[in-house]
Design a protein around this nucleic acid. Structure first.
Length: 212
DNA sequence: CCGGGGATTATCT
DNA sequence: GATAATCCCCGGC
């Protein structure tokens, strides 16, 4: 209800954060920011520890590759700072952040967060008996724990239902952020190799098999 | 620790 | 009718 009372030291990311042309850079800068949802009268939040960038029009892994536009991906073409939520494998709710400018479908997938507030609600939503490192690990689990569904697509992230806050601390140093090719897009040809995935090194909520 | 395969259904061809 | 920006479990080593 009053997120600013719960996050007294921080503020929402401004439009000027989303309203930039380099979606890969923005994906990297989102590491350490805080996603907050106010859904079903409960506030849940988590620190973003893993993202992936999807570049408008030219990226074979993007839903909007080559300008493709359908009912599902319509919100990719919305204003920067808009959410894009879609259903994957018939059951997973995947949260994306739209950047750049209206009509240019740059998107960033939120792949993992570290829980901050609302663990009781996250446990109830996921059916887990107690907190563990998988509760918000991977994009499907992020959507489930934070209560996000397709109905939350097309929302402005500067509003209060679904929003992203600065972390109130100094920016995460580059040396703590790892990068790699994106996960689960092997059918995207050459673009499957692009280093558009970013993650907080050593964080246990980052998805994928641990790297030796 | 690692890889394989099934679950489950909205979406697109 | 086929596919999918995933997840979880299981078996093998």
């Amino acid at each position: 209800m009053f997120p600013n009372l719960i996050h007294p030291v921080v503020k929402k990311l401004p439009l000027s954060f989303y309203n930039r042309a380099d979606v890969v850079q923005i994906a990297k800068e989102l590491i350490g920011k805080v996603v907050v949802t106010h859904i079903d009268n409960v506030i849940t939040s988590g620190r973003i520890v893993e993202t992936e960038a999807y570049v408008a029009l030219v990226d074979k892994a993007s839903h909007s590759y080559n300008g493709k536009r359908t009912a599902r991906n319509e919100h990719m073409y919305a204003a920067p700072g808009t959410s894009y939520v879609y259903i994957c494998y018939g059951m997973h709710q995947m949260l994306n952040v739209i950047t750049n400018k209206e009509g240019i479908p740059d998107a960033i997938l939120i792949r993992a967060v570290e829980p901050i507030e609302g663990m009781d609600a996250m446990l109830a939503r996921t059916g887990k008996p107690k907190p563990d490192n998988t509760i918000t690990r991977g994009p499907g689990n992020v959507g489930k724990a934070l209560g996000i569904s397709k109905t939350h697509s097309g929302l402005l992230l500067l509003d209060d239902v679904l929003s992203i806050y600065e972390d109130g601390q100094s920016r995460i140093p580059d040396e703590l952020i790892g990068s790699s090719k994106r996960i689960g897009i092997d059918s995207a040809g050459d673009d499957a190799l692009l280093p558009y995935r970013f993650y907080l090194k050593g964080n246990p909520f980052v998805s994928g098999r641990p790297v030796k």
